[in-house]
Nucleic acid binder design. Structure first.
Lengths: 135, 135
DNA sequence: CTACTTGCAAACTCTTTGCACCATA
DNA sequence: TATGGTGCAAAGAGTTTGCAAGTAG
């Protein structure tokens, strides 16, 4: 199990809570800390909120999850098992769509060439209006 | 004065606070509500925090300011007088750079063509690593 | 056993809201 | 002077932290 190894190799312990939280992130695809907490609660796998926050930070340090900011609210986490993608957030209906990283290829190149800036694609959120809401 | 007209035409009043807050946003270029509040405080132009929040929301509705999310924290406001630009945020040193909207032209086209998605460029924040931090 | 983890509760930060008083038009 | 606006204080979300008790290794 990947989780166990990542943890042990850095002196951390594998606990029930850590396994449950990583499972939840894997299954939920896009989830905020609160949503993860609620999800586990529902399934009777109650884990304290502080533990959820501490664990997400740890899993992120281990490279097993990442997060993106999909608007005003709390950050959204996803498993790094899910293929990398760009988030499109509609500011009218709040819907979140995923797009292939390739759409941003040109921008990534320009930013590297013109600004020496190395873009983190999995963290990219594009705000705008979706086709539905453009009418 | 643009502000007065925008307000009056929709039945709002021009108050000292509203003028001060818009001035602050114009001058600070990138600022969170708290920073705006602190900035005014320092200059002896004390305005209550709730008024700062209420006013920013109003100014945004009037199209005089916009905001972007530059990370975990509160949203960052800027005057719409400032030319439209894309934000580059370094996740290592937290620095915020601005880039010309043209870097994203390709992405905007792809998203429109492939997803019918209309990108709001002034709201675009790209996370990554700046040249300094790449070493 | 021992050090790492968790749960709990309290503290904090950011933001919103209700209400009496104030000021613009 | 009639609304609309402000300040204040309190209430709320979301997140962090200190500490005693629990548990993996």
């Amino acid at each position: 199990m990947e989780l166990r190894q990542e943890l042990r190799s850095r002196g951390f312990r594998l606990t029930t809570q850590r396994r449950k939280i990583l499972d939840a992130v894997d299954q939920m695809v896009h989830a905020t800390p609160d949503e993860i907490h609620a999800y586990l609660e529902e399934r009777g796998d109650s884990v304290n909120v502080s533990t959820v926050y501490r664990t997400l930070e740890l899993l992120q340090k281990l490279g097993l999850v990442t997060h993106a900011h999909l608007g005003h609210g709390p950050p959204t986490y996803h498993s790094t098992h899910v293929p990398e993608h760009v988030h499109l957030v509609c500011r009218t209906c709040e819907t979140v769509l995923d797009a292939e990283p390739s759409v941003a290829a040109g921008m990534v190149q320009s930013l590297r060439a013109d600004h020496g800036f190395d873009t983190e694609l999995s963290h990219l959120t594009v705000f705008g209006t979706c086709s539905e809401c453009r009418g």
